[in-house]
Design a protein around this nucleic acid. Structure first.
Length: 425
DNA sequence: TCTGGGGTCCTAGGACCC
DNA sequence: TCTGGGGTCCTAGGACCC
């Protein structure tokens, strides 16, 4: 009589060097060559480039230094979305329990599918084959008993591989791996652990929970320890609704003039508010971020936020609040003369159906509170915004809007890239 | 020649309430 | 003439993820 052990029913499927692989798919002359999507900054690098030390997020000039024959290609961002959606459709063919966690990766629970398709390893192989044959992209898959193990397995499987972690071999699989593969261990935590001589997951698991909590903080320490100890109870869920909506823009070193601040924030507020309205959401908290540029030293960013009583989703109101907050942040740092990035984020989201907002002015709503959708100003702004939304749906984003395109020359990333984020996963 | 854009979660201190 | 303890919300900063 043996103990029944759950099978490796959780799959983590992760497209390899996704943007770069799409470019190599679309243009066969790029195959086998070190390429990077982007320019000023590397958004994605092919494996040929990664082998030479090029990494995502790296400055373009640095990547070129490491790999002189690196080829920069502009991104086909709409293709990324389309192809990733096709891949997800293949995943859904094998189970309805798919949790997409980014454009190019997802967890699957195939426990209910084994009677149809065979054991998890067979399902994983089948998925990889179909994605390769039907779409033309390499995808790595990890199969294990928990999400954490499956995720690590897919990382170990890369590029273009499959790793199944047999439930009896989990400890042997985990112990020799480097700590940075544990979810939640980034560069800072990795360094702190290394200072204590902790480099492998096995060493991490052998450290006491208390010691980790005092080293890393209560929550992080407990979480990291639990994962290293192979105690992961998380289930594959549906895709969650996001708790905030934001946008940012980097524009190089600039003096924060009223014109610059107004035009950047107008553009950002337009993007954020449009997305909020499309989701029928609005948020009570507005947060802005200002990144100061400084020569030599690492860049410092500060945030300022304000939580109001009424949820915001109109472009003009969001612009006004953001402007006040940015000037507040600038006033707090009179020594800094140049900034390089502005961001707006709206959180504390609530549902705000269109119908509710189209109701007549609420009693007492005529007062000065411009934020309140029931007020005269709020209604007028809402009406303007929904008209613009409708025109754009019909004729495209550039058909009408609040702000000039003066800044688009300076934009380092095409709007298409930003739109990737606007697509609901 | 520094470093894109979209998110989540945690911490710590303070205000405020009971 | 001193001061409890818990809970919630807000703000700011930071680590981390893709």
């Amino acid at each position: 009589m043996g103990v029944v052990v759950a099978g490796p029913n959780i799959l983590h499927a992760d497209l390899d060097a996704f943007y770069a692989s799409v470019e190599q798919l679309l243009d066969p002359s790029l195959r086998g060559r070190p390429i990077a999507v982007g320019g000023g900054v590397v958004l994605a690098a092919s494996y040929e480039a990664k082998r030479r030390g090029v990494q995502g997020g790296m400055a373009g000039w640095k990547a070129k230094q490491l790999c002189p024959d690196l080829l920069f290609v502009g991104g086909h961002f709409r293709e990324y979305q389309r192809l990733a959606d096709e891949v997800m459709a293949v995943l859904y063919d094998h189970t309805p329990h798919v949790q997409r966690i980014s454009i190019d990766e997802a967890f699957l629970d195939v426990g209910g599918s084994v009677h149809l398709f065979g054991p998890p390893g067979v399902i994983a192989a089948r998925i990889r084959q179909r994605v390769r044959d039907e779409i033309g992209l390499p995808i790595s898959v990890g199969a294990a008993r928990t999400k954490h193990l499956a995720k690590i397995a897919s990382q170990v499987a890369k590029p273009d591989g499959l790793v199944v972690v047999d439930p009896e071999r989990e400890r042997a699989f985990l112990d020799p791996l480097p700590v940075h593969l544990v979810w939640g261990v980034g560069p800072v935590t990795e360094r702190k652990l290394a200072e204590r001589g902790i480099r492998t997951v096995g060493e991490l698991a052998a450290t006491s929970d208390d010691a980790l909590q005092s080293l890393l903080g209560r929550a992080i320490g407990a979480k990291v320890w639990a994962l290293a100890a192979n105690d992961d109870e998380r289930r594959v869920e549906g895709t969650r609704r996001s708790g905030s909506v934001g946008a940012q823009s980097a524009f190089g070193r600039r003096e924060p003039t009223a014109e610059l601040v107004r035009s950047v924030l107008g553009h950002l507020a337009d993007r954020v508010a449009t997305r909020l309205r499309a989701k029928q959401r609005a948020g009570r908290t507005v947060t802005v971020r200002v990144r100061f540029s400084s020569r030599g030293a690492p860049m410092r960013a500060v945030t300022r936020s304000r939580t109001g009583d009424a949820p915001v989703s109109t472009t003009l109101t969001l612009t006004e609040i953001a402007e006040q907050l940015v000037w507040q942040a600038l006033a707090d740092h009179p020594d800094r003369s140049e900034i390089s990035l502005l961001a707006i984020s709206v959180s504390n989201l609530v549902d705000q159906p269109v119908l509710q907002l189209e109701l007549p002015v609420a009693p007492g709503g005529q007062e000065a509170d411009e934020v309140r959708p029931g007020s005269a100003t709020g209604s007028a702004r809402w009406a303007v915004d929904t008209s613009i939304d409708a025109i754009r749906r019909k004729f495209g984003r550039s058909a009408v809007g609040y702000t000039s395109t003066a800044l688009s020359d300076a934009a380092s990333v095409p709007d298409e890239f930003r739109e990737l984020a606007e697509h609901e996963l």
